[in-house]
């Protein structure tokens, strides 16, 4: 199953995503289809604030999780995933800024990468949860680079939403189901 989860900063989207991933993982175990539960962290531990944010997230997660840190090449990791694995990507916004600003990805290249993740999930029959952030509802930014980033992120969101079975917006920790319902 492909799941897309988004919301504002500190809206509880990570917590909700982790709970959803954990319940898919436990459900698989009950049915004796043992998979692994992976957390793919796209953020780099480059500054103090990020280290603190990462620690908070790590403390929240239980021992069931295997954490993989990867800022760019998620295809490499996803291509090794097996049936019934549950993979949580946290988050798309940071991945996109990594590849756009450090690897000079065009929107087309980013879209190809994301489409590749989605195909791998479908073909490999593992659960893929993608967490992102809504950054497009403020005043329109005059800065060209920021505007291009927001546009690209929105395009990726729509690509993922189209191919997701479950689409959730999280506000104040409360999920709104835009597509599918559990």
């Amino acid at each position: 199953m492909i799941i897309f989860i988004s919301g504002g900063a500190r809206s509880g989207k990570s917590h909700f995503s982790e709970q959803t991933a954990l319940s898919l993982y436990n459900q698989g175990n009950e049915e004796n289809q043992r998979g692994c539960l992976y957390y793919i962290a796209t953020a780099k531990t480059s500054d103090e604030e990020m280290v603190e944010r990462i620690q908070i997230h790590q403390q929240d997660r239980g021992k069931e999780w295997k954490t993989v840190e990867e800022s760019f090449d998620l295809e490499r990791i996803l291509s090794t995933c097996k049936k019934e694995d549950v993979i949580l990507i946290d988050c798309l916004t940071i991945w996109l800024s990594n590849v756009m600003f450090e690897r000079d990805y065009s929107l087309k290249k980013a879209e190809m990468a994301v489409n590749c993740w989605l195909s791998l999930a479908r073909e490999g029959q593992f659960h893929l949860l993608i967490v992102s952030n809504d950054v497009n509802a403020g005043i329109p930014f005059p800065d060209k680079a920021v505007l291009t980033y927001i546009y690209s992120l929105q395009r990726l969101h729509q690509t993922i939403v189209e191919q997701s079975e479950l689409v959730v917006e999280v506000q104040a920790g409360i999920p709104t189901y835009w597509k599918g319902e559990r």
Binding site: N136, A137, P140, Q154
Partner: peptide, 11 residues
């Protein structure tokens, strides 16, 4: 009359 509202590039 219909109003369609949403963030930038939201579709």
């Amino acid at each position: 009359m219909q109003l369609v509202i949403g963030g930038a590039f939201s579709g």
